[in-house]
Each structure stands twice: as structure tokens, then as C-alpha cells.
Design a protein around this nucleic acid. Sequence first.
DNA 1: CCTTTTTCGTTGCTTTTGCAACATTTATAT
DNA 2: ATATAAATGTTGCAAAAGCAACGAAAAAGG
Lengths: 258, 258
Amino acid sequence: MGEDKLLERIRQFQNGEDVGLVLLDDTRLIEMWNPEKSLVYQVGYIIKDNPLFKNLDNEKMRRYLNLLHAEIKEYNKDEMLHRAGEKMEKFGLVLYGHVQACCDDMDGNRVIMAEVGRNVTFGESIHFLRLEDEPVYIEATEKTKVLWLSLYDVLANPTDATNADILCRFLSILSNRTMTMHDRIVLLSQHSTREKIILYFDILRRKEKSDTFVVPFSREALADYLAVNRSALSRELSKLQEEGIITFTKNRFTLLRK
Amino acid sequence: MGEDKLLERIRQFQNGEDVGLVLLDDTRLIEMWNPEKSLVYQVGYIIKDNPLFKNLDNEKMRRYLNLLHAEIKEYNKDEMLHRAGEKMEKFGLVLYGHVQACCDDMDGNRVIMAEVGRNVTFGESIHFLRLEDEPVYIEATEKTKVLWLSLYDVLANPTDATNADILCRFLSILSNRTMTMHDRIVLLSQHSTREKIILYFDILRRKEKSDTFVVPFSREALADYLAVNRSALSRELSKLQEEGIITFTKNRFTLLRK
DNA sequence: CCTTTTTCGTTGCTTTTGCAACATTTATAT
DNA sequence: ATATAAATGTTGCAAAAGCAACGAAAAAGG
């Protein structure tokens, strides 16, 4: 395979297309996926930026993925990754696509616990605590590929140097998770629909480092995420646009001023 | 010291009174607090039930507290334990009393991130991640005693058997923390004041395993916690009482039916 | 014990939100 | 391409929540 085609594939992969790729070093592919091999090393390029795998050479990456019983699965839009009440044998890392972790409250309303995009993990706590009967279910909101990882072997022997390192990385993931949940609590603590919208857009702006960003929700899902009525959300978005505070077409929004 | 007086002291201590106590085994004191000793082993009885110290004999408890640089401080009502923007050199564990972790949002409204009672930790993530410039501040809402612990030495040598054990325990704390934050998100996702009240009371009922429970907030703080207007909260509480769904005097509430 | 301050409940009024129904646009399937 | 379904925007009306002001009750301070 020529150098050009190789780089083209990397580009495609970065754009979220599934090109059946494999462990990479910083600039190029070093190994193609071989379906004969039982272990799946498809996705080194992306996860090199994940706190769980940061600053690992390829040899170590291999070892880590082995220890974590890495396994890749692909899901279609609206497909369930995990059902309420089931045990989470592994936790997930989104390679491309988006998933939502939801649960239904007492009145049957859907609560979106988390919206998970590329290179972000989910289900760590439920996996770690080996919880069953949790009301959380997880579904793909578009075509999605997930790297599934198990911590159980690592936990069984935590004094091993590699395992200890993995645990520290996992700890760091969990700590960061509580920080994003903090943000979510502040968001939901806003009293008006308008304040929730503005704060959420501000979070997206900081995340994307741009005044223009794509909201990863349908209007209905966004309403659920902000815990407001869908039509009230639509009304407020229209008002905000009238007042020249935001503009949007489809899910691409721009924050003009605050 | 006689057996009876000993047990009386244990009872007092369990009731939240500060009687200058110390490392205990399951049924009795085994060592009184000696202010001459530099290390503070005042509180074995309570923290024996904390996931961080569960199932440790006294010798191990000593070692763990040493490794974590345990230190005890006492605070009066309304005293600040930690100011926004400061580094958290240690994370805390409430021995008795209550603290609140708060931050102010864009509009200057106070958001209560967490309400922390006896034998519950706080500030783990900010401590672990060594974050500075976090907007969270922590204050005591009554007379409170806190055990401060540092993870830094433990993290410096994670392959040591004891340290690895501590890390796993810490991991378990963090995992459980994300679960309680889940509950908080579901709570804040309720659309009406009434739904928020009922769900919160239901959470307290399950926690206390009793239809009667004490709400650890003033009315104003409870309104902040539920992200509703204070007078709207008062109005709704009165309505719920009229309708025979709850009764209350001061902060002691009873859930009569749902 | 009395005074001062804070907390809590109440109420009228205004604004916001929820709800439901419908129109319009966009996406999906055949 | 066309039909069908789904998502989104719009609007009137009813319900709920926010706001502000006030008085009663409770707590704090001397």
C-alpha cells in the first residue's frame, strides 16, 4: 500500500469514516487490521489522545489493550448498546459516532444522563462497581463504533506496574467525569429556559473553541437534556434568533453575543 | 476507664458529639486520644464504615492514615473550609456536622453542588486532578469536624501493595460519587417543583429507610438545591401538606403517601 | 429576658413554561 | 420520484413559577 493511499486513509479515519484501520504511530499506519488475529487493534490513532492510552508506544498500547480485553463492536442508529438492568461486563469508548446514556424517571420521562462523542468513555462506574439492576440504558444516536474494555483482570492484580498505571489512568477518567457532571448540574440549576440555552451554548463554545458549533441533539433530545418543554425550547430559540443573540440552521448554531 | 463509661462515650460519639475519641475496634475503645502524639487517630469508629477504611484492623488503619497524611480540623457554622480558586492540598471526610460544596453561576446564583454529611468524602476529584482556579467553595453549615487526607504520596508509588489497595478504595469512592451525581441530575431534570420535592423526599426516605427524615437544608438552601424559587417551594410544601401527601415541622418531614 | 436579625410562610401580580393542536419542513422508505 | 413518517416551528390557552413585599415565627446575640 502506497504512502499516499495510507495518509488518505488516515484522513478518512479522522473524519469518522470506518476504513478498517489499525494501530498507528504518530504519522502513519504501522499495521493493518488482520481479521485472522483474534485481538483487535484497529484504532490506535484516535485513542492515543485518550487519557487512558496517552503517551504509550505501540508495544505498550498492545499490552494495555490486551489487559483490558479490548473488543470492538459497531452499532447502527437507534441500536441499544446496553439495556437497563443488565450487568456491564465492559465499559465503552466511542471510536466514532455518538451514544446517549439515559434513564426513565418515575413519571416515565426520559432523562439523558450523558451525551458521549468520539474518544470519550462511558459506563465506567457501573462497570467498576459491577452494578446490576441499574436503570440506565445506552443507545447509539447514529452509526457508532465502540471499543469495549474490561477492568476486571487489572483489578485482580493491582500491584503489577502496568495494572497500577492503568488504574491511575482510570482514576483520572473518573475524576474528569465528575467535573463534567458538575457542569451538568450547574446547567440544570439554571432557572429559565433561556439561561439554560445560553449556558449550554457557552459550554459548547468553550469546548469547540469557536462561536459556531454543532449541537449533538435533536430538538426533542436537547429539550430533554435541558429538562425543558420541547415547544418552549423552540420558542426560546426563535426569540434568541430574533433578538440577534444566536443564529442557527439545523443543528449548527452560532453565538453572536451574550 | 470503666467499661460502662467507655460504652457511654461511644454512644455519645455516635450521636455526633465530640468526645475526643480515638481508634476503636468493633465493640470498644482500644486507645484514647493522646494530644502528645503527633498523629491523629481520633476517629476510627466512624470511618471504619467508610469504603476507604472498611475491614481494616487497627494496625492497618494506623498505616493508612499515616500514608494519607491524616489531619483533623474543626469548623464553626458558616466557616469556609475551602475558597474558590485555591488548590485542594487534601480531600475531606466529614466526621460530624455538615458541609456544602457550592459554586456561583454566571448570574451570581448559588448552586449547591453537594451536601455532605457524616462519614462522606468531598473534593476528591479536585484534589486528585490537582486543579486550581476551580469555582467551587466549601463551607460548614453547622459545627463540623473534618478528616483531611492527601493522596499524593500514595499516587507517587502506586505499585506498593498498601497504596494499590488505597487506590482501589478511592476508585470505589469516586464511582459511587458519580452514582449519587446521577441521582442529582435526575432530580434536577424534573420539570415541576412538586416533582422535585417528591423525588428528593423519596431519595431521603430510601437513604434513611424511614418515611420520616430530616432535611439537611434551610428552606432557602433547599430551594437552591432543587433549583426553584424559595417562595414557590414554600407554597408547594404547604399545598402538599394540605393535600395530605406530606407533613412537616421545622426540618423533620414525613412522606404520608405518594 | 429582651432586642435584633434571620428564616419562613403567605399572597397578589407578572412572566414564563407546559400543553396540545396544527402547519411546515425534513428525512426515510419503497 | 413519490409517498409516508418524523422532526421542527408556531400559537393560543391554561397552569406553574418567579418576584416582591409583608408579617409571623424562630434563632441569635447581648
